[in-house]
Design a protein around this nucleic acid. Structure first.
Lengths: 211, 211
DNA sequence: CAAAAATTTGATCATTTGATAAGATTTTAA
DNA sequence: TTAAAATCTTATCAAATGATCAAATTTTTG
């Protein structure tokens, strides 16, 4: 009888399938109900497994959550990594914003999972925020600062520019219900994202350029 | 023996005090842990009352939550009401954004309470969003649209402009932990909000004006 | 195939938690 | 001051839920 995951490297076929199934279900459930609001029963049912069977693959509820959160964080950080110091400043910043928006469109559940974690004080990922995330942002803000010093874009605090981009783009995933309610149920989600894209582009391009 | 609150109008002195105490405690607890994450024990303890005593004033956990959410919603909508069609367009929009930011600064708990509700699909306030909120936004966007038609500000979708303002301003309350982590613990909260204010002002003023 | 390993299940626990009931205590009003 | 109303407490409950275990079943391996 082999201890699952933990230290061992080789996953069996069934392990690979079922662990992924559990993580998929967990994303759906945790993102909708939060950590405490979600139950193992819900996750098990959504994954089409019995509850003890779920606990065969993960130590416990928190283990599932943490695993899922780690995956999500990687995905979340990636686009910022790609901000290119040699590109055109406005283009690069706009590209970053629109990439984030696209991720919000395509994976709103992950966005909400992350938002919920932060909203409640990041009990599980605080150290990642203060470590990897801060380092990455420090690096990229210094690029933006250089652009500002060279007069390529308007002088704004680079940190807050990034916060602004995060805020706007995640808003469409995290506050989807509100956005939909305000726009009326007639609007299609696609049109909403297209309009969002135009608005972000206008304000950023116009707002960043020097006079 | 009088049934509390419900239909009666007159509150006793003790009722007024204790109901407010419970709501204050509930704001602190619900905003940090969400509806399901919060427990009556926590709220009771925070309010310095016994659990059954808390339930003497409110039918149940959900009753506390709904009452609190109604209060919060009113407060949340107010600033938009004051957007003045006769004022200077850029000034009015900027004033709205900065007022929202100020509310984020002064009452971050209410912001997080609301954010959590929306994030989880607005189970308790969906109808308010589709009713009062939508009506108010419809009214104000038509004002903004008029400004656009008159060439007073750049042509952007007014709805998404408002979403953008909501997103940015609430970000500082809702994602406070992340903002603080990225800026480093050395930064004071006051400086953070001051810089946020400058950034929002720059981008909006620059971003909205017509060329 | 047969033994070993891995997977799955049913039964069951201990805790947490929202809620209630009955009675004691305090406050209010006549 | 005294009776009624309001407030508060102690004890307790039932349901939900995360977790465990032993045994049954399936899959893999030699």
């Amino acid at each position: 009888m082999m201890k699952r995951a933990e230290t061992s490297k080789k996953k069996t076929r069934i392990q690979a399938i079922n662990q992924q199934r559990i993580l998929d279900a967990a994303l759906a459930i945790f993102s909708q109900f939060g950590f405490r609001g979600a139950t193992l029963d819900q996750i098990a049912q959504h994954a089409d497994l019995s509850k003890p069977n779920v606990l065969y693959y993960f130590r416990g509820k928190q283990d599932i959550y943490v695993t899922l959160m780690q995956q999500t964080l990687d995905q979340w950080l990636q686009p910022l990594v790609e901000l290119d110091p040699t590109g055109d400043p406005v283009d690069e910043i706009l590209k970053y914003a629109l990439t984030k928006l696209e991720i919000s469109r395509q994976n709103p559940q992950a966005s909400r999972l992350f938002a919920n974690e932060i909203l409640h004080g990041a009990p599980m990922v605080k150290s990642v925020l203060e470590g990897d995330l801060k380092s990455l942002v420090d690096e990229k803000t210094s690029i933006i600062q250089r652009w500002i010093d060279e007069g390529k874009i308007i002088a704004v605090d680079p940190y807050h520019l990034i916060f602004m981009i995060w805020a706007i783009t995640q808003h469409y995933a995290d506050f989807d219900i509100q956005v939909t309610a305000v726009l009326g149920n007639s609007h299609s989600k696609d049109k909403c994202f297209d309009d969002a894209q135009s608005t972000i582009t206008s304000i950023l391009v116009n707002g960043l350029k020097t006079n």
